[in-house]
């Protein structure tokens, strides 16, 4: 058992290194670092400017600015996670023609996919910290590292991490069915952006859509992140729920996502083998 786990870990590590090599090799290291820093900072500043123009930076709306910035900061996990899983699987098939070899390797396809996307998730974590620093020092949101509820933050992020990976593996495997599915990862990430409570509370959505959004773990995760960092000084999506209640909902929604993801992955994986999607010639 121990040997098997060690083998899986070494395979995972190789997939991580592969993901890093593929995602960082498009330019020189210095430009890559600059891009990785500037992208989240500019994203946060654009939102802050929009907020300022619209609200006039009135003091009463400051909790909403905090809502916006923290939601955007943590959103990069989903953006990078979903799009990288999808881009990775399609790139490996259409561009590198290597997916079939990775697929039939003993490592296990899901582990390979997670490893392949890990470097992007790590850079997303760095971008979270960068945006929060921008929020603390440039936008004066009152973020104090000593006052953050770290256990709540870590618990929420771990659960979200699990559900995002479950969703991303399933979704990216579904994309194998198409010949022209490049870019779908970014599209679905943007779609989720609107329904996750990252930039506005899900209660403003039309009734049925708000109900569907409430089944997702994402709004609860972002709510807990905001509360863990700024406690009552941030606009709350679920003001009538305690932290424990929101956490419970996140646990249930994550369990549902993982279960549904597992069932769908089994189905789509088998379907991909049945229809010959793993090494299908595609338009790349």
């Amino acid at each position: 058992m121990g040997v098997a786990v060690a083998r899986q870990l070494s395979g995972y590590r190789a997939a991580v290194l592969l993901g890093w090599a593929v995602s960082s090799n498009w330019t020189r290291p210095i430009l890559f670092i600059a891009y990785s820093l500037l992208r989240p900072v500019s994203m946060a500043l654009i939102l802050a400017v929009m907020y300022t123009v619209i609200t006039g930076n009135a003091a009463a709306t400051r909790p909403y600015l905090a809502f916006l910035i923290i939601g955007t900061a943590f959103w990069s996990f989903i953006q990078e996670g979903v799009s990288e899983f999808a881009n990775g699987i399609l790139e490996d098939r259409g561009r590198y023609h290597i997916l079939k070899y990775a697929y039939i390797a003993p490592l296990g396809f899901p582990i390979y996919l997670v490893g392949r996307a890990t470097s992007k998730l790590a850079s997303a974590a760095a971008s979270v910290v960068i945006v929060l620093l921008v929020g603390a020092f440039a936008l004066h949101l009152g973020i104090n590292p000593l006052q953050i509820d770290y256990p709540l933050l870590v618990a929420a992020c771990l659960l979200a991490f699990v559900s995002v990976i479950a969703f991303a593996i399933t979704f990216s495997t579904m994309l194998l069915a198409g010949r022209d599915t490049n870019g779908y990862g970014d599209i679905i990430a943007q779609f989720l952006y609107l329904f996750s409570g990252a930039i506005f509370p899900i209660s403003v959505l039309p009734g049925p859509i708000a109900w569907i959004a409430s089944l997702s773990p994402l709004p609860y995760w972002l709510e807990l992140c905001r509360r863990a960092i700024l406690h009552a000084r941030v606009y709350q999506m679920f003001p009538n729920m305690s932290d424990g209640e929101v956490l419970l909902r996140l646990v249930v929604a994550t369990a549902g996502t993982v279960l549904l993801g597992y069932i769908l992955f089994r189905f789509t994986d088998r379907r991909a083998r049945r229809l010959g999607h793993i090494d299908m010639e595609v338009n790349w």
Binding site: S10, G11, R13, L18, A21, Y96, I98, P106
Partner: peptide, 25 residues
Amino acid sequence: SGGEQAGYGVLKVREQLWMFSQFYG
């Protein structure tokens, strides 16, 4: 398989082969 350009262009030959060796434990 022959007749295909399989391989991660950004990797070196030894890197790619080592990577696959790890996928096989």
